[in-house]
Design a protein around this nucleic acid. Structure first.
Lengths: 343, 343
DNA sequence: TTGAAAGCGCTAACAA
DNA sequence: TTGTTAGCGCTTTCAA
C-alpha cells in the first residue's frame, strides 16, 4: 500500500527557528554552535523552537559557508578485498562517533581512477582524506596543497610528501615468519610477494631477504617472485616455483590473495601441506583456520589500522599544525599446521 | 622531505572563469551544464578558460543551490559481511560511472542507528538512498516524504511504503535446496534460519516448509530454529539440532554466517560431512570450495543485486514519476560434496 | 548580548 | 544570445 505525499516537504531552516524563537538567525546559529554571548534564557527559547520544528541544520549550506564538511574521503584499492573490509568498517565506526560520514571509493590500483577520486574529494569539500596510494611517488597529490585537505596514508607510504601515515611493520613481520619457517626446518623457502612498486611489497621482500641472511641461507633469485597482488598471479607464481628443478620446501605468500592463489596451486598439483611443501601466508582470513591443514599466517591488525588512521586524521583536523607522524603497527604470527616441522 | 605551501590555495570559481573568458558567470554555467543558447565560439572560449584555470565546479555550492547532490546514501547492516561487500562494490561501480559517489553507513541491524543515518542522508542532501532495512515496518521512513528522497530497498522488503526494491527469490531458492537434499536421500532435515523479522528469514522459512510439504515430509518444529543471523547463533542452533534425541541427517543454514557457525559446530562434534550429517548453506563464500568437503550452497548474485539497485535508483532519479517496481533475482545452487547422496 | 547584512559558489528566472 | 540578479541555508563580521 502506497503512501503518497505531494506537498512540498516542510523542511525547516534557521530562519523558521529564529522567527519562532523571536530572535535573529545569527542567534540561532550561535546557540546551535554552542558559542558564548547568548543569554541562557534566550538559548533555551531557541532550543525549544528547534525541538518544536524538528529543525536539523543543513550540512550542505554549512559546508559551503565553512569551506569544510563533516565528510571524510576514503580511497582504497577494492572494498572486496577482505583486508580493506575491516579497515573501512573501523574508519566508519570512528568517523560516525565524531559526527563524520565517509565517502567510499575504489581505485582498483589505477592511478587515473585515484586521481579522479582525489579531485572529487576536493570538489565535495571533504574535511580530510584517508588514502591507500596506488603509487609511492604520487604526482596527483602535488596538485593539492596539503594545507587545504589533510591526508592520511594507509598501509602504503607516500614519498616526497609529508603526511601522517599508518603502516604495518612489514619487514619485521616477514622476518619473523621466515624465521619461523627456518626454525621448523625449512631451508629452501620460496616467496611470492607483491611488486616493489608498493611499500608493502618492497618491505616484505626486504624482510624475506634479511631473514635468510640472518640464518646464513644464501638468497636464490629464482625462489623470489614478485607479482601484482592478485589471486591469479599468486597461482601462477606458485606453479612456477613448484616447477623448478629444485622446488622450494616451503612457500611464503605475501598477501591474502597471493596466499589463496598459492594454496590452490599447491592443491592442484596434489601436493601435501606441509609434507611436500609448507605454506605460510599473510593476513588472517575466515578460511585460514577452516581449510585442512590450517594455514599459518601473519595476522594484520586490520581494524586497528583503520581505527588509527581515522583517529590520526581527526586529531589533525583539530590541530592542523601538529607535526605529522607515522604509526607502525605490529603483525602477529598465527601458527598452524601448514608450516609445522616435519623433521 | 616535506612540501609546504602556505599560500591560500588558488581554487578558481565560476567568476574567475567568466572574467577570463570575457563573459558572465551565467554563460559559464550554461556551458558547463551543456545548455543551449550559447554561441559555439563563446562556448569554446569558456572551455578554454576552464582548461587554463583548471576550474572544477564546486559540488557543494551546486548541491545547495540545486537542492540535490550527486551523492547516494548507502545504508547496510555491516560492510564486514561478505554479502554486502560485493553489493557495495557494485553500487559504487555503477554510481561512479554516472558521476555519483556513495556515502557508506553500517546500521548493525540497529533501528536507531538506521534512523540516525537516514537523518544524515537528509541533511547531506543526497540524491537517493539504497537501504537494507532493519525492520519491515519502518516508522523512521514515514517521516520523510518519499517524493523528496528516492529510496530503493535491497535484500529485504519494506511494508506500508511503496518503493522500488531488489530482492532475491528466497522462497524458490530455499525450496530448490531442500528439494536437492530430499532427492539425495535426506529426510530428516534441520534448518537454521534468520528470524522472521526480516523478509529473508521469513521467506527462507517458507521455502523450507513448502519443500517439506511438497515431498510429503511432516514438518517437525524442533528441526527448525530461527535466530539472529550471526555466526555464534548458527553455532549454537546447530549444536541444539545435533543434541536432539533424534538429530537431523542434514542441516540447511540460511545465510553465510549461519553456515559458518553450523560448519564449526559440526566439526566441533567430530561428525563427518555428509556421512553423519549433510550440510547445505546460503551464499557462496571464498571458503565454500576450499574446505573439505566443499559446501553446497545457494549462491546469491550479490554483485547483480547491487548493480540492479543502483541502476533502478538512477533511473528513478531521471524519471521520478515512473511506477515503482520490485526486481527479484534468482539464486543458483552450487552442489558440492557436503550434500552428496550417501544412500 | 543581539541583530543586520555580506557572502560561500552556484543556478535559473527574468531582462535586455 | 547573453547578462543581471536573487537566492539556496548557513556563519561571521561589524555595528548597535
Amino acid at each position: 500500500m502506497a503512501i503518497k505525499n505531494n506537498h512540498k516537504p516542510a523542511v525547516k531552516n534557521m530562519n523558521d527557528v529564529a522567527r519562532l524563537a523571536g530572535v535573529s538567525n545569527a542567534t540561532v546559529s550561535r546557540v546551535m554552535a554552542d558559542k558564548p554571548h547568548v543569554r541562557p534564557e534566550v538559548r533555551e527559547r531557541v532550543w525549544k523552537a528547534v525541538q518544536e520544528l524538528g529543525y536539523r541544520p543543513n550540512r550542505v549550506a554549512r559546508s559551503l559557508r565553512a569551506q569544510t564538511s563533516r565528510i571524510i574521503g576514503l580511497i582504497i584499492s577494492d572494498i572486496q578485498n577482505p583486508f580493506f573490509t575491516s579497515v573501512v568498517r573501523a574508519i566508519e565506526d570512528v568517523a560516525h562517533q565524531q559526527g563524520f560520514s565517509i565517502i567510499l571509493c575504489n581505485s582498483d590500483e589505477d592511478p587515473s581512477k585515484e586521481q579522479l577520486y582525489l579531485d572529487l574529494m576536493h570538489d565535495e569539500n571533504v574535511a580530510g582524506i584517508i588514502l591507500c596510494p596506488t603509487r609511492e611517488d604520487n604526482a596527483n597529490l602535488q596538485k593539492y596543497p596539503l594545507d587545504s585537505i589533510p591526508l592520511v596514508t594507509l598501509d602504503r607510504r607516500l614519498i616526497n610528501i609529508d603526511t601522517d601515515g599508518i603502516l604495518l611493520d612489514n619487514i619485521e613481520s616477514t622476518r619473523a615468519m621466515v624465521k619461523h619457517l627456518v626454525t621448523n626446518g625449512y631451508q629452501r623457502i620460496g616467496a611470492v610477494i607483491g611488486t616493489s612498486d608498493f611499500t608493502t611489497g618492497r618491505e616484505r621482500r626486504e624482510g624475506y631477504v634479511m631473514a635468510l641472511a640472518t640464518h646464513g641461507i644464501p638468497f636464490q633469485p629464482e625462489l623470489l617472485i614478485q607479482v601484482s597482488p592478485k589471486e591469479a598471479e599468486g597461482y601462477r607464481a606458485t606453479e612456477q616455483l613448484l616447477g623448478l628443478s629444485e622446488p622450494p620446501t616451503a612457500i611464503f605468500a605475501g598477501n591474502n590473495l597471493l596466499t589463496l592463489g598459492a594454496l590452490k596451486a599447491i592443491r592442484a598439483h596434489h601436493l601435501r601441506i606441509p609434507q611436500d611443501v609448507a605454506l605460510a601466508g599473510f593476513d588472517e582470513m575466515p578460511w585460514s583456520s577452516l581449510v585442512e591443514p590450517g594455514i599459518t599466517v601473519v595476522e594484520q591488525p586490520t581494524y586497528e589500522l583503520g581505527r588509527t588512521a581515522a583517529e590520526v586524521l581527526l586529531r589533525r583536523l583539530e590541530t592542523p599544525a601538529r607535526p605529522t607522524r607515522e604509526v607502525v603497527l605490529k603483525g602477529k604470527l598465527i601458527l598452524r599446521e601448514s608450516s609445522r616441522s616435519i623433521a
